[in-house]
């Protein structure tokens, strides 16, 4: 009966994962391996193709148009113009590339639209967290703490299937941006993605599928060692159950992959350093880029994080 409960939990989390995350690993790998035929992504590899990419995205019907709107984000910050979701939700958010602007503005604007997508992704992760049995019964302040500390780790894991050693899919898989192009951006923008590529290429060799990913993400959210938690016991209890479910899932789904569970536990530790470095880079950006505006939700998450 216990194993049956753990399997039921795995199925529940997998369904929630499919419900809340718009682009999962399976379709992503199909795009990256060129199995989507006519729907191959547009490739951005230099400034010229970056501008063409905008045309491409504007001409093409956006998927997920009917996704839930982000009323809570916009309501919380009425008039917040950079929150741009729904049908016209593209890589570059609300602005357009004129071709006339100074070169150094490109990075900044691209960064702003990445922030918009990240804020939307935080909402997706929040909905997923709420679907974890027992999560919404936790102290509300602890739910906030778990999300604050867990959400960037979750986003990095969600980003991994979008990446290969040569680049990353963006804009719901419609665009492939090369790693070399990202490296060619001016400092410190060029330093932002490289650590994620290094992590993702290694993480992808573990070959988790979407059902494994769902459990792993739930484990990342439910960590009893996040700073400032008020009531650790129930969180640890929930995490223990999800960890057991993950361990069983891996045994069944990857019988030949030795030590996969232990390797994933190690990844949980590695992620913490990546997030710390990421937050420090954002703090550096805030100081050096006078025109930069940090999204209020991301600001909340990163303030006093590490």
């Amino acid at each position: 009966p216990e194993a049956a409960d753990l399997r039921a939990l795995a199925r529940h989390l997998f369904r929630a994962y499919l419900k809340y995350f718009p682009l999962t690993k399976q379709p992503t790998r199909a795009i990256l391996s060129g199995k989507t035929g006519d729907n191959a992504p547009c490739v951005i590899h230099d400034m010229k193709s970056l501008m063409e990419g905008e045309q491409f995205i504007n001409c093409r019907q956006m998927p997920f148009q009917e996704q839930q709107q982000t009323s809570v984000l916009t309501a919380a910050h009425g008039g917040l113009t950079e929150v741009h979701m729904g049908s016209d939700y593209g890589v570059w958010g609300m602005t357009s590339i004129s071709g006339q602007e100074p070169q150094n503005a490109v990075e900044l604007r691209f960064f702003q639209s990445c922030q918009s997508r990240s804020a939307e992704a935080v909402r997706e992760v929040t909905e997923f967290a709420k679907s974890i049995p027992g999560f919404t019964d936790l102290d509300l302040n602890d739910q906030v703490t778990l999300l604050k500390y867990g959400v960037i780790e979750v986003l990095i894991i969600m980003m991994s299937p979008l990446m290969n050693k040569d680049g990353t899919l963006i804009s719901y898989g419609q665009i492939f941006m090369t790693r070399e192009f990202l490296k060619s951006l001016r400092k410190p923008f060029c330093q932002m993605m490289e650590p994620k590529f290094e992590f993702s290429v290694k993480f992808n060799t573990l070959e988790l599928d979407d059902s494994d990913m769902a459990l792993f993400l739930a484990c990342l959210i439910l960590r009893g060692d996040r700073p400032g938690l008020l009531n650790v016991k129930p969180i640890e209890k929930l995490q223990e159950t999800v960890l057991h479910s993950l361990e069983l899932q891996l045994k069944l789904n990857h019988p030949d992959s030795l030590q996969l569970f232990a390797k994933l536990l190690q990844k949980m530790t590695d992620l913490r350093q990546i997030v710390t470095d990421h937050v420090h880079l954002i703090q550096l950006l805030k100081k050096t880029e006078v025109d930069m505006c940090l999204h209020p939700l991301l600001q909340e998450i990163m303030k006093d994080l590490y």
Partner: peptide, 20 residues
């Protein structure tokens, strides 16, 4: 609570019943 106003709102925002 003020420090994490949006996160609180996202968590308390009642979505349609999860029909999983």
């Amino acid at each position: 609570k003020e420090k994490h106003k949006i996160l609180h709102q996202l968590l308390q925002n009642s979505t349609s019943p999860v029909d999983l």
